[in-house]
C-alpha cells in the first residue's frame, strides 16, 4: 500500500493489500481461489463506486497525487531519446521547467514540461513546479529553436501555477507569460499541449497554447486554484473542496466547454496505478494528433490556431 494514499483510495488499497496477501499465500501451495475471487469481485465493485463518481475536489487531489507520473516521467517512458537544453540566455536556469530535444518513435520533437520533484530536495530545486520568468523564457527559446528547424512542439503541463515571488515580479513574471502567449499564437510549427496533472492558471497557460490541447482524464485546469478561490470568496483556504465545485475545473468540464480537444483516458484509479500503460496511451494520442496536424500548411495551421482561441467565450448580444 502506498504511503501516499488519498482518503478515498484507502478502501481500494486495503483490498489490493489483502489480494496481495492471499496471492503470496497461494504461492505457498495452499489454494485461496475462492477468497481471491471474492476479493477481486469486491475490488471491482468498490473501484466502480469510488472512481465512477469522483467529486471535482477528489479529481483535484488525484491530479496532484504524489505518485502520479510527472511530465519528466512521461518523457522517460515515451521518448526514444532526450537531450535536455538549459537556460534562458537572459538571467538563469529555471529547473521548474524542463525541455529539450526529444525523439518520439524516430520523430524529432521539442518537448517541454513542468518539474515538480518527488522528494524534498528535488521539490526545493524545482520550486514545487512553480516557474519563474526564466522558466517561461527558456521554454520560449526552445520553441523558437524548434520553429527555426521546423520541429513540432509538445508541452506537458503539471504545475500549481507561476511562482508568486518578489524576484519573479522584479524580472517580469507577467511579461514572460504574456510573451509566451503572443509568440505561441504565431509559432510556425505545430504545438500540442497536454495537461497531465494540475493546470494552474496563467502559469499553465504559458505552456498551454496550441493547435491541440488535451487533458488526462483525472487532470484539472483552472483559472485559480480552489484554495485561492476559497481564500478570496470566504477568506478561508481550507474550504477548497467547496470552491472546486463551482470552478468547473475537471477535464470533462473543459471538454464540455469545447476549450480542449480531447480527453486522454487513464487506467481505473488514475495514471499512477499504471504509469507505463498511461505513457503508451499518451504517446499514441500525440502521434495521432501530430499526423493530423501534418496535413495542414503553416498558414492554415496559424489561421486555425487563431480561430480556435478567437471563438472561446460565451456572451449574448442584446
Amino acid at each position: 500500500m502506498s504511503k501516499n494514499s488519498l482518503e478515498f483510495e484507502k478502501p481500494i488499497d486495503d483490498l489490493l493489500h489483502q489480494i496481495k496477501k492471499y496471492e503470496d499465500l497461494s504461492s505457498g501451495g495452499k489454494d485461496y481461489k475462492a477468497e481471491l475471487q471474492r476479493l477481486r469481485k469486491k475490488l471491482a465493485k468498490v473501484e466502480k463506486e469510488v472512481f465512477g463518481s469522483l467529486t471535482p475536489w477528489q479529481k483535484t487531489q488525484l491530479a496532484r497525487h504524489p505518485d502520479r507520473p510527472y511530465p519528466v516521467d512521461y518523457f522517460n517512458m515515451m521518448l526514444d531519446d532526450f537531450v535536455e537544453l538549459h537556460g534562458d540566455r537572459r538571467f538563469a536556469e529555471d529547473y521548474a521547467i524542463i525541455g529539450g530535444m526529444g525523439m518520439l518513435e524516430g520523430r524529432p520533437v521539442m518537448i517541454i514540461g513542468n518539474q515538480k520533484g518527488r522528494d524534498t530536495k528535488q521539490k526545493i530545486k524545482y520550486n514545487f513546479g512553480m516557474a519563474n520568468p526564466e522558466g517561461y523564457r527558456k521554454s520560449l527559446r526552445l520553441m523558437k529553436l524548434a520553429e527555426k528547424f521546423g520541429k513540432p512542439v509538445i508541452t506537458i503541463i503539471d504545475t500549481p501555477g507561476a511562482y508568486p515571488g518578489i524576484g519573479a515580479e522584479e524580472r517580469g513574471q507577467s511579461q514572460a507569460i504574456a510573451e509566451n502567449l503572443m509568440e505561441m499564437a504565431h509559432l510556425q510549427v505545430p504545438i500540442i499541449a497536454i495537461v497531465t496533472g494540475e493546470g494552474g492558471s496563467g502559469g499553465a497557460l504559458a505552456l498551454g497554447m496550441g493547435d491541440r490541447v488535451l487533458m488526462l482524464e483525472n487532470s484539472v485546469y483552472s483559472v485559480i486554484s480552489p484554495e485561492s478561490c476559497a481564500a478570496i470568496l470566504w477568506r478561508d483556504a481550507s474550504k477548497a473542496a467547496d470552491a472546486a465545485e463551482p470552478l468547473r475545473l475537471t477535464a470533462q468540464d473543459a471538454y464540455s466547454f469545447k476549450i480542449i480537444d480531447s480527453i486522454i483516458p487513464e487506467p481505473t484509479g488514475g495514471a499512477h496505478r499504471d504509469g507505463k500503460a498511461e505513457a503508451t496511451v499518451l504517446k499514441t494520442a500525440i502521434k495521432k494528433h501530430l499526423e493530423e496536424l501534418d496535413r495542414f500548411s503553416i498558414d492554415e495551421l496559424l489561421e486555425n490556431r487563431y480561430n480556435k482561441y478567437r471563438r472561446i467565450g460565451v456572451y449574448e448580444e442584446q
Binding site: L181, A185, L205, S222, V223, A254, R310, G313, V314
Partner: peptide, 18 residues
Amino acid sequence: ARMQEGLFSLMQMAKTSA
C-alpha cells in the same frame, strides 16, 4: 481574470494575446 467564468476567463488571455 474573472474567476466566475473559470477557464473561459483564463482563455481570454490567450485570445487577446493572439
